[in-house]
Design a protein around this nucleic acid. Structure first.
Lengths: 284, 284
DNA sequence: GTTCCGCATGAATCGATAG
DNA sequence: ACTATCGATTCATGCGGAA
């Protein structure tokens, strides 16, 4: 496999070590890296997920290649969660954030994925784990963010609240706490959509029945809409069953997928082909 | 103020430095410490909330007294959030977790408080911040946890939310959550109550009240039910307007409250008296 | 009593401007 | 160059009074 100038390297699933695959891509060629790296001690067979003590050292070679191939205004989103080990949450995620900042990354935000239908189970010392991090890293403060593309329907409160406005609603009313905060409700009349928060409520249903995806398609789809535009390049170095690539295709972005396992890159590949086929069918 | 053997030191609000107040309590005398310490650079007037770089050093003297006065099977719950500084989330919360583990604490869990009515605002690089940590620390693996006391009705579980919320709230949530969890639902048929997850959905309240609370009463109430029994001792060393004490009283636990500010300890005190009075009225 | 409606409030954050 | 202050932006809730 060689890097080709005519961009034939795009929209493909590679199998192999993601570091080596990424080394073949030029500097600043990717707009968004969104991925769910193997968690410590999980999915050992597939990726050789390292023990938690070695997790940071294991991950840094990946993050260094991320830094090189990411465009200056691009973003990295890591879906990850500290698992419970010997009765405690392990600290490798915290240590990873600190280590990546030392290497030059900006840790802009910690989006929370609230898993509405988290896996059931019962333990004596904890409840079901219903959330995961989506860590947002960038190279620069002025990264690309297209907030309008992920607006959501305004809350039901608006229907009642905005029907009739009082006197104070029509003028700007300043908060008393010196926060400098005020409101002008006239701005809200007719508004149907608002910006979301940093908490994402998504279910863990995976479209692919044969092979469970670690995250639902809606998760990468959301970040793809938020941080890229049509025709941009989205990379997932641990693509698994292909979810990120499918989300990218549906959003008309270019994708690059890598998976260590030959089996999984095959699965991802056929999932990709399936998606393209069904899109072409719809167009007819 | 002196420590007295007949336990007159319980069910009181103290004003002063919490470290010094705690030094007067005996070893292993508290079942639960649940508190919201001042965040970095916030509430400077009230507590002298330290700059983020000094946060860990500032907090460790408190955590050491916590360790001494906490019963072996007791718990500590810290409600805290890293704020955004110069375009990044600051790492002082991560560093605090790592530092407390080095001092012997077990970091058992990171409960997430999802703030449904997060502070509004718009920025080019992030959305509204709608969640906070509730860090759970213990001294031992076999700490006390009374899971049955916080079971929720099966319908409420669908959205992962707690009971005791407004009516509007339930209407809204039901309409939104029709997707996703149908598959698992069959497992739960016949069960009336189920265990919650580690994500708590609560609104901040403070509208039209004399004093503002940093967290809603339901937050400490939940952890009090989960980690203590009737007659146990609950401490909040940064009690503010008294929310934790009120939750403890209503749950028939003993409380100790401390606040650096004389004004706030007065406010907390009168809130406590008000609560006791209204409970006695109900009994008649 | 119950529902409806007015309204004030909140651990916010960034960029520009001033000292 | 570095810090301090200021203005701009924004969503959902519960309380309390009215219908």
């Amino acid at each position: 496999m060689k890097f080709q100038k005519n961009k034939k390297y795009l929209n493909r699933i590679y199998s192999g070590d993601a570091v080596k695959v990424m080394q073949q891509f030029p500097d600043g060629s990717v707009d968004l890296i969104v991925t769910s790296p193997p968690y410590a001690d999980r999915r050992k067979k597939q990726y050789g997920g390292p023990p938690p003590e070695e997790y940071v050292e294991w991950f840094l070679p990946f993050s260094r290649e991320f830094y090189r191939i990411l465009k200056p205004k691009g973003s990295v989103v890591l879906n990850i969660k500290e698992n419970a080990i010997r009765g405690e949450r392990h600290t490798y995620v915290l240590e990873l954030i600190i280590a990546m900042r030392k290497e030059g990354w900006l840790w802009v935000e910690d989006y929370i994925w609230h898993k509405k239908n988290a896996f059931p189970g019962k333990w004596s010392n904890r409840f079901r784990d219903a959330w995961e991090h989506c860590l947002h890293f960038t190279k620069r403060k002025d990264f690309n963010m297209y907030q309008d593309s992920v607006k959501v329907k305004i809350g039901d409160w608006a229907d009642g609240r905005l029907k009739s406005l009082g006197v104070n609603d029509k003028k700007r009313s300043m908060s008393k706490t010196n926060s400098g905060f005020g409101r002008q409700l006239t701005n809200w009349v007719g508004k149907r959509k608002v910006y979301p928060s940093n908490v994402l409520h998504l279910s863990t249903i995976s479209a692919n029945k044969n092979h469970c995806a670690v995250f639902p398609e809606t998760l990468p789809a959301w970040f793809i809409k938020l941080f890229t535009r049509k025709g941009n390049v989205v990379l997932d170095p641990f693509i698994g069953s292909g979810t990120t690539a499918i989300a990218a295709i549906k959003a008309k972005r270019n994708f690059i997928g890598v998976d260590f396992s030959k089996l999984y890159s095959k699965i991802a590949n056929s999932a990709v082909k399936e998606t393209i086929k069904s899109i072409q069918k719809t167009r007819k």
